[in-house]
């Protein structure tokens, strides 16, 4: 990529995406995020936050334009290569249901390592992460469905970070948590991202969370107004 700079982690250029069976979509003319940045991206629901994350994770492809993560252009990758790239370089935490409820916590995290092709000393790293997230090690053998929502969200961070991704995409992770566990969650998240120098993109409609992150952006600053086309 000619215009790629070495510290560019996320890069979008002239991206347009239309929702299937619909005339509306989003478009981003230019946006980039540099290595190590921690960005709080806020916007009302329905403003295209989740669609942006889908595009950045390579789950959906834009109609036109370039998306590059760590200098790798998604349009140049096959479906399978994109899956592997995502597994190795991008960690994702959703609002809820981050874990497979019938697997144990350890199996959930190990599964993520498995799809990234990382099989060496996984158990040791799982244990380290669980301890860093201030969870008792007994949770490792519990089924994910038996944990409280707060615990599940913390395990989701461990799951997202097991492959030491350069980018962490987080989508409304605290909306199901109460105030005290939300604080604990945010502190741990920032702590771990600092420790691993992970680039963080935190998406939420709750502006009170912006105090935890260094940089704050409104979605409307990067997305040209959600398009409504009529034919």
């Amino acid at each position: 990529m000619s215009d790629a700079q070495p510290n560019q982690v996320l890069y979008l250029q002239a991206v347009q995406y239309t929702y299937p069976n619909s005339h509306s979509g989003i478009s981003v003319s230019h946006w980039q995020v540099n290595r190590g940045e921690q960005i709080f991206l806020h916007g009302p629901s329905g403003s295209g936050k989740t669609t942006l994350l889908n595009l950045l994770a390579g789950i959906i492809s834009p109609d036109t334009g370039n998306i590059a993560v760590l200098g790798e252009q998604f349009s140049g990758l096959s479906e399978r290569q994109r899956d592997l790239f995502r597994a190795r370089h991008i960690g994702v935490v959703f609002q809820q249901f981050n874990l497979i409820s019938h697997l144990t916590v350890a199996q959930n995290i190990a599964l993520a390592a498995h799809f990234a092709g990382q099989l060496r000393s996984v158990e040791q790293r799982i244990e380290q992460l669980i301890m860093a997230l201030k969870l008792p090690t007994e949770v490792l053998t519990k089924k994910a469905g038996q944990l409280s929502v707060g615990q599940q969200q913390r395990v989701a961070i461990a799951r997202a970070l097991i492959n030491q991704p350069e980018v962490l995409l987080v989508d409304e992770p605290t909306s199901a948590l109460d105030a005290s566990s939300r604080d604990a969650f945010m502190q741990l998240l920032i702590e771990l991202c600092n420790a691993h120098q992970t680039t963080l993109l935190f998406v939420s409609h709750d502006e009170s969370l912006s105090k935890y992150l260094e940089k704050r952006l409104a979605l409307s600053e990067i997305i040209d107004m959600p398009e409504v086309r009529t034919c």
């Binding site: 789950i59 995502r86 597994a87 497979i100 993520a112």
Partner: peptide, 16 residues
């Protein structure tokens, strides 16, 4: 559906 979404996000291809 949710389970499949989780699998997809951690890098499982549709083939898997």
């Amino acid at each position: 559906e949710k389970e499949i979404a989780v699998l997809r996000i951690i890098g499982a291809g549709a083939g898997i």
